[in-house]
Design a protein around this nucleic acid. Structure first.
Length: 291
DNA sequence: CACTGTTTAGGTTGAA
DNA sequence: TTCAACCTAAACAGTG
């Protein structure tokens, strides 16, 4: 297994699990939710290793999406035609990775299988919450684009109230394998005109880009283009700077805050115990309608 | 029909 | 050594 920061991963298998790769893809998108095809595209664009044997790893990736509770399937709304659903990270899985590193997870993120309809409705609320968050992010992006004299995002108009200002950049230590560093590219001040996949000199200062040759095309490999986030009707968003949001939202709704305690890897549920997957279909419980 | 999503099963690897 | 995380394969159903 290659060590990051040394040789290029251009043709080698990256040291990230499929869960990590999927989380990267989802986090890289302003809406924080992507259809399966875009997740594929993200991974193939950044990791040449995954441009081969696509059937194999894509099957594994789909398995991970369904099996792991940290991913939530968000159905398309009627105004979002297309195949398949959107996939998002569960709002409470922010501390899933050790010190923010995507190399290995602390513990499998597991949602206690809801045995009652009330718990199921909470899952629906979580999906609805994610949909609303995606709306708010797009609204913020549209406002930012307008301020920067950029064309509106696909002509989408949302009736939601203006989103709160983006949270201040976290001052806490960011692990080199944190998503912000792995996919670092558009994290610039709004209005400065995001540069998708900037060259090395645009990289965050803390972690030089040569540490991420597999992402930035180091080691003599040309940088690869960032995939277009085509959520919400295939609207290209790459020219719009991303609004950085914390992996773990600072203020979760009550229903999520309450559940996050039980869902947290550090929560009382802890390790051990029979796998919920073998008891009840977790995916069926997480797949909820949002309208 | 291709793609998407779910589920099961078996194997490998690393940490405790 | 055990256990959990992870990987891979495969079968199958649903959907656009």
């Amino acid at each position: 297994m290659p060590r990051p920061g040394r040789n290029t991963y251009s043709e080698q298998k990256p040291p990230y699990s499929y869960i990590s790769l999927t989380a990267m893809a989802i986090q890289s998108c302003p809406e924080k939710m992507l259809p399966l095809s875009e997740i594929y595209k993200f991974i193939m664009d950044r990791f040449p290793y995954y441009r081969e044997n696509t059937q194999r790893w894509q099957n594994s990736l789909r398995h991970n999406l369904s099996f792991n509770d940290c991913f939530i399937k968000i159905p398309r709304r009627p105004d979002q035609p297309g195949k398949g659903s959107f996939w998002a990270l569960h709002p409470s899985c922010g501390d899933m990775f050790e010190n923010g590193s995507f190399l290995r997870r602390r513990k499998r993120f597991k949602v206690v299988a809801p045995a009652d309809p009330l718990a199921r409705s909470k899952a629906a609320e979580a999906a609805h919450y994610l949909q609303q968050q995606a709306k708010l992010r797009l609204s913020a992006l549209a406002a930012t684009a307008a301020a920067a004299h950029l064309p509106p995002i696909g002509g989408y108009h949302f009736t939601t109230s203006p989103p709160p200002p983006p949270p201040p950049p976290p001052a806490a230590f960011k692990h080199p394998f944190a998503i912000e560093n792995i996919i670092a590219r558009e994290y610039k001040a709004p209005g400065t005109g995001g540069v998708p996949f900037p060259p090395a000199q645009h990289a965050p200062q803390a972690y030089p880009l040569h540490a991420w040759p597999h992402v930035y095309g180091g080691g003599g490999v040309e940088p690869v283009a960032a995939p277009e986030c085509s959520a919400y009707g295939g609207v290209p968003l790459r020219a719009v700077p991303a609004v950085p949001v914390p992996i773990k939202p600072p203020h979760l709704p009550a229903f999520l805050s309450a559940s996050s305690r039980a869902l947290s890897p550090t929560g009382p549920q802890g390790a051990g115990g029979p796998s919920a997957a073998s008891q009840q279909s977790p995916a069926a419980l997480r797949s909820v309608a949002v309208h």
